[in-house]
Amino acid sequence: MSADSPPYRLVQKLLIKKRKMPHSRLRCLHDKNGTNSHDVPSNFQLLFFAMCRMSSFPWDALERALQNSPSEVILDILRKTCLHPICRQNPPSVKYRKLFLSELIKRHELYASEPLDELYDALGDVIGAKEETVCYKSYLLPSGEPVGLEENVAVISEGTTGLVTWEAALHLAEWALEHPDIFTGRTVLELGSGVGLTGIVVCRVCKPTKYVFSDCHQSVLERLRNNITRNGLTEQGSPGVSVLTEEVDWQNVKKDQLRRIGADTIIAADVVYDPDIIGCLVRLLAELLKCKGQQRHPEVYIASTIRNPETYNCFKNELEKAGLKHIVITHPVTQVFPYNRIVSIEMIKVHC
């Protein structure tokens, strides 16, 4: 950041103002509940890189930790978020980082007698950054490695909702981490892959022989290919897994295409949301389940966020009409990724 730049001058003014702030203005919240200051920065890291809502951050736990060593705790959070290498490679949106840093500054000044220069330097860098229509979200695997995704800032854009990650995809990814045997050594077809979160997690952890990402929207397919490459998976040959991206139009899919893919395991997340596409989705599932020439009968797993019970029940009724049965998978999954767990998500296995 240049010494002549407006953000730099703004930050310097803020620093001067805060250095003049009398200690008597600092507020201390007394709370006898203890907290592990090492856990707080790690939790902030998970939530920050997934661009979770500010209200979901453990602010109360942070304020308890700040009573003992405010600058050290805030600096640890800063190093795990805005100053972390992941943030340089896959930065959350400019607006999000501004809000996050503003909240940290607000909390820090309640407990510290001196400002933390690193905080204001980070804010100055963000103030001078240009807001984009895309942002990056990163989800940390149990190993600590990130799955970085380029997504649109807007939930609906370019005529599709497929350019962002939805809760059911995260739930399905967590379920896959607990059931790698369903994917290991198999050919997996994912319907409606979106930006690719679930498939990338499966490829990175569950060791399928071949993984076929699919979608029908051209903008989604382009973003999907970018995210696959971003995470070290390429169609030219990825370590340990053959990765393909296919355009699969549920309405006009060809039997030859399905036979060529030859999937052993078929998964989908958040594909049951529009009554107009339920019919072609069920017909596709029926065709996949009766495909010949495969060594084992394919298994089909679908994770759905139940936003409209009427639409979801319509899907189940159409499955029954097509001669397909389903089993609701009731086993809970271990929380790995941060997302809204209040929403109703159901996993089913579809079979003949």
Rank of each mutant, 00 (worst) to 15 (best):
D249C: 13
R307K: 15
I306A: 06
Y273R: 05
I278M: 02
F213K: 04
K255P: 00
R225M: 12
T234R: 03
C291P: 01
E246K: 15
V253Y: 03
A303T: 10
W250L: 05
S238R: 08
A269K: 09
D276Q: 14
D276N: 11
L258T: 01
S238T: 13
I261S: 07
T229P: 00
G262K: 06
R283V: 00
S304D: 07
V241E: 11
T245A: 12
L288A: 12
P309A: 08
G240Q: 05
E222F: 03
E310I: 11
G237F: 08
V300C: 15
C280V: 12
V202P: 03
N252G: 00
G199Y: 07
E246A: 13
C203Q: 01
H297E: 11
R283I: 00
H297G: 01
I266N: 08
V205M: 14
K290F: 05
V202N: 01
G199K: 04
K207H: 14
N226T: 03
D215M: 10
V272Q: 07
N231V: 01
E247L: 13
R296F: 04
V205I: 12
I266T: 05
R204F: 02
S219H: 06
N226E: 08
I266R: 02
A263D: 13
D264I: 11
Q294A: 08
L289A: 08
T229A: 10
T245Q: 10
V241N: 06
I228W: 03
P298Y: 05
E310C: 03
I200P: 11
I261V: 14
V300G: 05
G232Q: 11
I267K: 10
L244H: 15
V282F: 00
D215I: 09
I302S: 09
L288T: 06
G240S: 04
S304V: 10
C206E: 11
Q295G: 07
K255N: 11
D270S: 14
E299Q: 15
L284S: 00
R283L: 03
I200M: 10
L284M: 10
Y273D: 14
Y273N: 09
V201R: 04
E222T: 13
G262R: 04
T311G: 06
Q218T: 12
V212W: 04
V253P: 01
V272L: 10
D274G: 02
N227Q: 07
Q236I: 01
S219L: 02
I266P: 08
T311N: 12
R223D: 01
I267E: 05
C216R: 08
C280A: 03
V272M: 10
L244G: 02
S219Y: 01
V272A: 09
V220H: 06
Q295P: 01
Y301K: 07
T305W: 05
C216M: 11
Y273S: 13
E287I: 00
S214R: 02
C291M: 13
L288D: 02
T305K: 12
G237K: 04
D215P: 13
I228E: 02
R223Q: 13
N226A: 09
R204S: 15
D274N: 15
V241T: 14
V212K: 04
L285K: 00
S219M: 06
W250K: 04
C206G: 10
E235K: 08
K292P: 12
A268T: 07
G232P: 10
T209W: 02
V220W: 00
P239N: 14
L288G: 06
H217S: 05
T265I: 14
S238V: 04
